[in-house]
Amino acid sequence: MADEALFQFLHNEVIQYIYKSAEGGETENGRNITKLENMGFRVGQGLIERFTKDTARFKDELDIMKFICKDFWTCVFKKQIDNLRTNHQGIYVLQDNKFRLLSQLSAGKQYLEHAPKYLAFTCGLVRGSLSNLGVKSIVTAEVSVMPACKFQVMIQKL
């Protein structure tokens, strides 16, 4: 389908743009990541509003996480999360064995250092969605072998 490619190309360009435009002044990596993360946050807020328009009210946190893993992930990345684990104390680990935004990168170690900038937007996306559903969280990502990646969601208790 063509629309999958569009999102991927746009996402790549956004990253390119942010990194290029920052090159002149500060080449601080962290600031660019934050920018991408914030973009994702706003997009996530809007998306979740649309996705949950026709769904029943969520029972609890786990119900929300399941929705993110299934429906949300399918809409955005055309596949479900492969594995969801939780310690039932506010930490969730979402594992995707073939993350779509990384699938076009070489599977070796060569581009491993570039992986974080391809994950920042998605981290924001998840955080924004959760925040709009009333769950404050911190989302981090980690990659060990290329197309697979893990998102760790830490729920902030009030």
Binding site: E49, T52, T55, R57, F58, G134
Partner: peptide, 8 residues
């Protein structure tokens, strides 16, 4: 009458 979205 009332209505609450999933985002409260």
């Amino acid at each position: 009458y009332g209505y609450v979205t999933n985002s409260k």
